[in-house]
Design a protein around this nucleic acid. Structure first.
Lengths: 127, 127, 127, 127
DNA sequence: GTGGTCTAGACCACC
DNA sequence: GTGGTCTAGACCACA
């Protein structure tokens, strides 16, 4: 991972874990790497990972078992999906629609862009 | 205006001017309120407005005539449309499409949300 | 302030602010000392104060105005009262009642202890 | 048992034994399950149980007979009652009363909550 | 001036 | 081994 953009590193780490749960590559009950392991593998300070984990725990996505490590909550998938959908609808969509109107784009235009995106994405995966 | 969200205030001010040009409510050659006027009406530090204006001038959207004020450039509409379209396609859309895939949403779903959005928006305007 | 007990410092700072709102000594809209000021006056690292403030902001008790400082939210008093009451009922009371049963104490006994407590407290205030 | 809350597991185990003595369900001279048995039944690391037992032994509540096991001390009931009462008065009550004043609750309010608690508790036992 | 993030390194309690 | 807290000090963007 390289940490692009303005988004703070600890948030990017948190998101990457949330996404891995959404994609199904982390399942409920599974242990996630210890703070120190993750810090090494991401080449980041342990405090930064700690912050990401703490925030995920606040959101009820992972849970700490003391002295053992962090584990994916049973309800993690549902919570993440719920939260991200909510964010999407209340933050992403209004901005999107506003821009579409200003730029004179229609939903059909979006459809075409989406096809392009999926083609490129599949190319990437097959590489 | 209330300045919520992560976006810096000076950018929100700049965007609001860009948008007013896109919407056609500010036309080329028109004068823009002075830094001080704007600062008062927005309840914001003049430095912040100054920064917004400077940034818009950098982008060739407005121009400063010394001792007189800021004016909308002749080519402003085209430049804004060009820039915002670029941003939209290279920044907004990829993030949008990534989220749609993760959340299992289709372009059709977007269409439905868009109708809702336009209804609410029209309601607001007729009030 | 001296930081006693097992409770982390950043939480004690947060609580002390919450309590000052409950007592009415901080009113809505008021600015609270900057992170650095508070750090100096509490003889604590700025990061520790930052953490306390961030957590209060999460809870909707204070709010940051960028470049200016933190301010007590309009709804702060209600939120604090609501949250603390909730904690009290769900955490404190069950433990209390369990102990009372085990130790064979009645609510009347509590009443007596409470009178003692208030006497001592008033003594302290009049000193 | 599930080990939620901030209290360390070894303490929760120790407390549960202390409480069983207070309730009278463990009598003086009785043998306590071996460290291993307890560890299995509680799904916990044996070291953790060991620590709980050691701490209880320090407090003179149980005693180790080498090669045989741990046994409830003759004076256990009195010691536990004494210790817990002390803790209750010096730790629990001041915090309780402080919160009551901040939240504007009276001893009468506590009485009502206590009735609710006893009702629910009896319901649980009769299930 | 303000807050926000990050690193490095330390110490602690707990399992 | 695990996570949690704290310090010291740095850098950054923003108002």
């Amino acid at each position: 991972m390289d940490f692009r953009g303005a988004e703070p590193i600890y948030q990017q780490i948190g998101d990457s874990i949330s996404y891995s749960i959404l994609r199904g590559s982390r399942k409920k009950g599974e242990r996630i790497p210890s703070v120190r392991e993750m810090a090494v593998s991401m080449e980041v300070n342990p405090n930064t990972v700690q912050r990401a984990y703490a925030s995920l725990q606040d959101e009820g996505i992972i849970q700490n078992k003391r002295g053992i490590g962090y584990f994916v909550q049973d309800s993690a998938y549902e919570r993440v999906k719920e939260m991200k959908t909510q964010e999407f609808i209340s933050d992403e969509l209004p901005r999107l629609f506003k821009m579409m109107e200003l730029l004179g784009l229609t939903v059909d235009d979006l459809g075409k862009y989406f096809e392009d995106y999926r083609k490129n994405n599949n190319k990437d995966k097959s590489q």
